[in-house]
């Protein structure tokens, strides 16, 4: 009886002490985490959920949101030609700029990787456009360079006597000037490729050349397979970046996405809907479609890994 009584007393006491230890252990962690946690709830999780709700409403910032069900999404897909224009512009941009940029980055990285003098100088020069390229200043420069009286046309006149058009204000070419601007910034994936190439053991190449492998075979049998994880990483990163492109199109088209919607990037259209027309419900729906599209692309790329990405610790 006494025995069982003491058990009955001690068990909750032990539990209480263990809980207290738990709290004491949890406390420093949560104190350190507090700023991030507050920011996460306030600026990320909360707004994400609210925007999901707003995407099912009509909301103009002045009156309270009106529930409209899936009307925003229906309108987007069935009766908004501008939405489709922006989708087509953005997909064209992604599909052209990402592979070109990565191809340049990889090619230059491979040239620089083979023990060349002055590597750090070349690397710095090729990287510089990546560092400066996202700025408004470079967008302004681009607007001039591809304008009617711009650098490109000056050069064409000087070299070939050709009177070039205004590449910026011609709907057939304007998007390609932006693709070029993106490809020009191949420096940052190049640096990642260089770091990746450095990881490949040199003796593999030596062994291969002793076995009589050609340069081309070395590329396709050693370099590319061993670099696949880095290519994959760059591909995911650059694709997400390309989907989010905004500043150059905004500056060059003066915020309109013109001429004739030829540079109406998806993000630009979203900005117009939300902050020029204050259709904030519709803009939220656009944002969610963007999120799902990026997620789908990323998932697809991850899934495709099994066919082309070889990780060294894989057992095959």
């Amino acid at each position: 009886m006494a025995h069982s009584a003491s058990l009955a007393v001690s068990a909750p006491g032990r539990v209480a002490r263990r809980r207290w230890d738990g709290v004491r252990n949890a406390l420093p962690g949560y104190l350190f985490l507090a700023p991030w946690l507050a920011g996460f709830v306030l600026f990320t999780l909360g707004p994400t959920l609210v925007s999901l709700y707003l995407s099912f409403t009509d909301f103009d910032l002045l009156r309270a949101p009106q529930w409209v069900g899936a009307a925003n999404y229906q309108r987007m897909f069935s009766s908004d030609p501008k939405f489709w224009a922006s989708v087509s512009v953005t997909l064209t941009y992604v599909v052209l700029s990402v592979p070109l940029k990565l191809a340049f980055a990889l090619a230059v990285a491979m040239v620089l990787d083979r023990g060349i003098r002055g590597l750090s100088i070349y690397r710095a020069i090729f990287y510089l456009p990546s560092l400066l390229g996202g700025s408004v200043a470079v967008a302004i420069l681009w607007k001039q360079v591809f304008g009617y009286e711009g650098l490109v046309n000056e050069f064409l006149w000087f070299a070939f006597g050709i009177n070039g058009p205004s590449w910026i204000s011609n709907p057939a070419t304007s998007l390609y000037t932006l693709v070029l601007l993106s490809v020009w910034q191949f420096g940052s994936p190049m640096i990642i490729f260089l770091a990746g190439l450095r990881q490949i053991p040199r003796d593999l190449y030596e062994a291969a050349s002793i076995d009589g492998a050609t340069r081309r075979q070395q590329l396709t049998r050693i370099t590319l397979p061993l670099l696949a994880p880095v290519i994959f990483f760059n591909l995911v990163l650059q694709t997400i970046e390309a989907f989010k492109a905004f500043t150059p199109a905004f500056i060059i088209s003066g915020g309109t996405g013109g001429p004739v919607d030829s540079t109406l990037f998806y993000t630009l259209y979203l900005y117009q809907q939300g902050f020029a027309y204050f259709r904030m419900g519709y803009a939220s729906a656009l944002a969610w479609v963007l999120l799902l599209t990026i997620a789908a692309f990323t998932a697809l790329t991850f899934f495709s890994q099994r066919f082309w990405v070889y990780y060294e610790d894989d057992q095959r």
Binding site: F40, T44, P47, T48, V50, L61, L290, L291, I294, T298
Partner: peptide, 19 residues
């Protein structure tokens, strides 16, 4: 959760943040 926010395009949180 923190890693998840890395992938989140900021457009999704834009309008509620603005509000």
């Amino acid at each position: 959760a923190m890693l998840g926010t890395l992938m989140l395009p900021y457009h999704v949180t834009l309008i509620p943040q603005y509000v």
